[in-house]
Design a binder for these strands. Structure first.
Lengths: 231, 231
DNA sequence: CGGTATCCCCCGCGATACTG
DNA sequence: CAGTATCGCGGGGGATACCG
């Protein structure tokens, strides 16, 4: 971003972070996404050239470190300056969750993203001791299936059947599950309305709601839903 | 700014604030600048069309309210949502003051801005009871003079001699006074180095350093000057 | 996987002039 | 003071192809 020509920290921050995609890229890296192609997948719509340009820029200004283990095995890590930005970006999100946030636009109902985001917010300590495979099916905006493989240490997303037996099967309306994730409604209300259905052994179905901690911003979204004052 | 197509508060905040100038505009309004032409002067380089477009946008998304007292007497005020953004923008600046901030670029030495900024950070309770007129002279990058009229309630900047008697006369190297303002150096060190000279009655010259509270970010800049670790 | 190279369009935005 | 109107360019960035 072109300089503002001001010796002011706010202006400097705006120059470093003001380019399109940069804040979202930092958000993703703050969640530990560290590979070029994975970053691309987490930012639908970004072009590969822009992603490369942003990563170079962030490296140049000292927010990101490029770690080339060997040849084509590259990882990107936040520096301390980059990690230090995490609470700032969070406060941006908290602000938006409180004021600028209404309902999901139909165009925003990307089930790929939702599944990725859910996989980042697994309450691992609430899971059974053994590995759990949860299958998710969405009908809208297009039919999609995913498998979440969860254990006490890790959560991974599969776009194809991983081969393991499925423990729990979830059918969800994409918008409804997005709203649950974001704190706009409760999972139980979505289930009552028939927008989310969970199949599987009784004990697992009972515990399922506790396996996810949902969005970091959900508490703020819930709070904002109460106080509707905008002026 | 084009949508990111993500139902995520961080993405929404980036859409609302991501356009060029928007964050700086909100910074200015947070300081109470509320007139179109004054905003233009506080954002050197912004074009009038972009300023108008940004104000309309911010009004549309509910951060700014346009108050037309009558005809051409218009003021812009932050809504509660806009005021709520102030600490967020501040945290952006704090981050930059800590990590992304080195020395003023020669092109950033705009004495107009410096005087305006200083006038916002007057420690009114440290002033004498009576009105004080301080004259500032800069030699670089071009010869410029200003008068700061200070009292217990108010501070105003004059680009021309206001007619009142001058109480204190300050001659300053622009870069040095910028650095003092931003916390990169102390006023006394700048005086010692002959980069700032204060003339006037002994008592006023003695008290002058306490009349200004300097930049909000100065403490962070000072702190960062100690710890040079960047990785 | 981890990028680069190219192409090209569009529009953001700065400059200037003009109006009520 | 508070804008609108117009113009013109520069480059941001999306799409696609290609490479080691």
């Amino acid at each position: 971003m072109r300089s503002y020509g001001q010796y002011c920290p706010v202006a400097k921050a705006a120059e470093v972070l003001g380019d399109r995609w940069t804040v979202l890229l930092m958000r993703e890296m703050g969640f530990g996404v560290d590979r070029f192609n994975e970053l691309e997948r987490c930012l639908p719509g970004i072009s590969r050239s822009v992603l490369a340009q942003r990563l170079r820029h962030l490296e140049r200004v000292g927010l990101v470190e490029r770690l080339a283990a060997d040849g084509n095995n590259v990882r990107y890590e936040l520096t301390q300056a980059g990690r230090d930005l995490k609470p700032v970006i969070r406060s941006l999100g908290e602000w938006a969750a409180k004021w600028a946030f209404v309902d999901p636009d139909p165009l925003e109902l990307d089930s790929d993203l939702l599944i990725r985001w859910m996989s980042r917010h697994v309450a691992h300590d609430q899971l059974p001791e053994r590995r759990i495979v949860a299958e998710f099916s969405f009908a809208t905006p297009r039919v999609k299936r995913y498998w979440l493989v969860l254990d006490r240490d890790e959560a991974s997303v599969c776009m194809h059947d991983p081969g393991f037996d499925t423990d729990v099967s979830v059918m969800a309306d994409t918008e409804a599950l997005y709203c649950v994730y974001m704190g706009k409604r409760t999972l139980s209300s979505a289930i009552k309305d028939g927008l989310v259905t969970i199949h599987g052994p009784r004990a697992l179905v009972r515990d399922f709601p506790r396996w996810f901690s949902w969005s970091d911003f959900a508490p703020t979204v819930r709070e904002a839903a109460g106080t509707k004052t905008r002026a």
